[in-house]
Amino acid sequence: MKSIEALMLINSFVFSSIVSFSRVDFIFLLPIGIILFYEKEYLFTIFKKLIFINLFIVLLVIFVFFQNQNEALILLIRTNLILLFNIALFHKSKGYDIVRGLDALNFPAKVVSVFYFSLSLIIYLLKDFKETKNTLKSRGFKSTTSIFTYQTYGNIFGMIFVKALRKSEDMTYSMQSRGFEDKIFFLSSNSIGLIQRLITLSIVVIFIKVIYELFS
């Protein structure tokens, strides 16, 4: 394993799988503790994101609470452990490292290319959407529950879509002129640092413990 991005994806998948399907254990805090200690400058950002995402989970937890209070508590802890680990692991990511990771994991070239196109367009379209929103505001548009509002949003989506199509065609032509067929080549990745090795080691320890408990 030479790619740090691929290792991050594997760590995320293995940790999330273990926490999703095994009994909640204090040892799950070990890799989370390691990342949070390493990312201590960004604790506020990480927890702010966690609280925001919890707004969606709490709704399900409330429903479960009426049927089984214990299960509701476990659900809340389990989902938050996974979220906290992944948010802390990827909070600095701009997405291109994920694409490089998938490429290093030998995902099909077409899938990696779709990821690359998608990510490039997301960045372009988000900027464009912000500008459109500002234009609407400056023209006094107020979104309400009305057909006019839904028509405006439909047209905005349509406009964004057409812009994305044109941008993607430009990207395709520019890439085809450089010999693109279905595979995008990436620059080499960063090497795996001490912190990633420690996180991997802690996940391996958890994995062994879970397997041992399963068969003992």
């Binding site: 990821f115 367009l121 379209l125 395709t172």
Partner: peptide, 9 residues
């Protein structure tokens, strides 16, 4: 590939 990227975005 490009239109699939657009749909994804």
């Amino acid at each position: 590939i490009s239109i699939t990227g657009v749909a994804s975005a």
